[in-house]
Nucleic acid binder design. Sequence first.
DNA 1: CCACAGGAATCCGGTTTCGCGAT
DNA 2: CATCGCGAAACCGGATTCCTGTG
Length: 653
Amino acid sequence: MACLNLKWSSFLAGVGSLYEALFLPAQIHTNTRTNTKTENTATKSTRETRSEKTRRTATGDPFYYFCYSDTVHTTTPRALTVTIVCLRLPLCLRWEEEKYTDGSKWRFLEHKGPVFPPPYEPLPDRIRFYYDGKAMKLSPAAEEVATFYAKMLDHEYTTKDIFRKNFFKDWRKEMTPEEKSKITELKKCDFTEMHEYFKAQSEARKQMTKEEKQKIKEENERILQEYGYCVMDNHRERIGNFRIEPPGLFRGRGDHPKMGKLKRRIRPEDIIINCSKDSAHPQAPPGSRWKELRHDNKVTWLVSWTENIQGSIKYIMLNPSSRIKGEKDWQKYETARRLKKSVEHIRAQYREDWRSKEMRIRQRAVALYFIDKLALRAGNEKDEGETADTVGCCSLRVEHIRLHPQMDGQDYVVELDFPGKDSIRYYNKVSVEKRVFKNLQLFLENKQAKDDLFDRLNTSILNKHLQELMDGLTAKVFRTYNASITLQQQLKELTSRESKILSYNRANRAVAVLCNHQRAPPKTFEKSMHNLQTKIDEKKKQLSAAKKELKAAKADAKMLRDEKSKKAVEMKKKAVQRISEQLMKLEVQATDREENKQIALGTSKLNYLDPRISVCKKYWCKKWAVPIEKIYNKTQREKFAWAIDMTDEDFEF
DNA sequence: CCACAGGAATCCGGTTTCGCGAT
DNA sequence: CATCGCGAAACCGGATTCCTGTG
């Protein structure tokens, strides 16, 4: 039994830190009644011995019972300590113990349901909407939709034709017949008073007194405590998104054909609740009822509803810190590590397949090469006209690729240029092997710009093939694998005596570049860079001033040769030292920020990099004695609790 | 075997809010 | 001590992957 192997020292050191929140306090009860379940259920190592029981019974000591792995245990206060040690096993070990084998995700699930946004509050009468220059009072329904648009007036969206067209069409659906007949052109609509009103409102919110802000904060905290947590099996877990999305105008990314459409308000009647039968079911708001109450423990969601833009289902699920998410995350990295073991074999295989007689196999092999080498996404087919035109590997078209037998002194250069996920541009020129190049030429023969590059391939064919190569292997595992292995290598190479954080960020950046995680340069980038430069210049001045003083002090000391002036020299020396350190720090910061201008580190850190690489002794935090707080903030530490908690110091991805 | 649709879960960049140091 | 400005964190919700069932 694993809990017996635990070191007491680690228990004592750890109690009161990371994990008591994972242990459901409400399920520890002091109990003076006899618990009839005692005899047959206390099967774990925490079972009290017969002599302990005799002693307890004799002395009338209180005892506790608690649930663990769906079993009720009883224990004495002393034994409870042991029990908590057991619950404080490294998370992944605990998860192993708690795992279900029948595909179910939980046994017990209790929550309070979603939080709805407040109902619409009509505008005060003085705020007017003008049509064709004339003031006009709108019906509440039409007015609400108009406010959605008014709030976005200084956003680029409202300049886009599709957005305006979609909005106007959906807005008219909310109008009364009179309004409908009157309001026929968007360009004659004047929302500026409404827009100003909302700006003033948000300004007023900022101007609120401390007390008012405090009150709002407390109310939010209360809602969080009531609705933001659920009980899943034996743990109280944080819910990820317990608030229903408020109505508004749909904001698609890229050239989305549906941008500007009305995202309607979700009512209790649209909501499906999922919880366990034996839990206290969430109550629908007074006067309403849920669409359905379901008890499906094969899924992880608590609440779902169908959204009206794409007709897809939205869910309320748990926070990344929860067992159910963490376990999945861990599993993801374990699969990527298994890929590491067989990747050489798989590479040999697809290289072999480049010369296959069958076109479908060649295409599969070249696509896989791209996925492996360039960390491209799989590229599922998308509904044309329903979504923005974006592609991934399998859905690349002729127009996205250019072949250059020679370029910039390199042979066989492939130029890729396409809109990827979220319409982020992927642009890359890469030298490939001759066989790949020849194959690509073959795939391009007799095709038009809009034709598929891999016309005999799609993601399901590819994934089916991958599944045969390795259990659990899919296209995205390559992204995870290549990202994590790159971080590990980069950390090995880059970390030196220079700034640790800069090195870490550079390794992280290498991964972000590989995964094409770009961002628009922050609006304040130039300014903040400028500010930093000013600081650096000031520091430089300070430094030269300090140096001057030091020189003067030295001269004095030479002249006077007394204790006092010697001391002064020491002081000045220290000052110079201090200031130059501060200067270095600023300069590192500037370098880091500049290099990060168009790169988003967060996504890879959160989704692709095995946290154990960063935590572990061999590679990073522990090796370089960098506190974990320097690389993971609070949320990230919560999400990666399972990795931070791992004891294996020889971890290798 | 394949096309198709629906469902569940992960991934992802932008926007808003928060908290802290400087003034 | 108040408030101002900024960067980081939190939030948000859309986008994509991948699986399953049906026919």
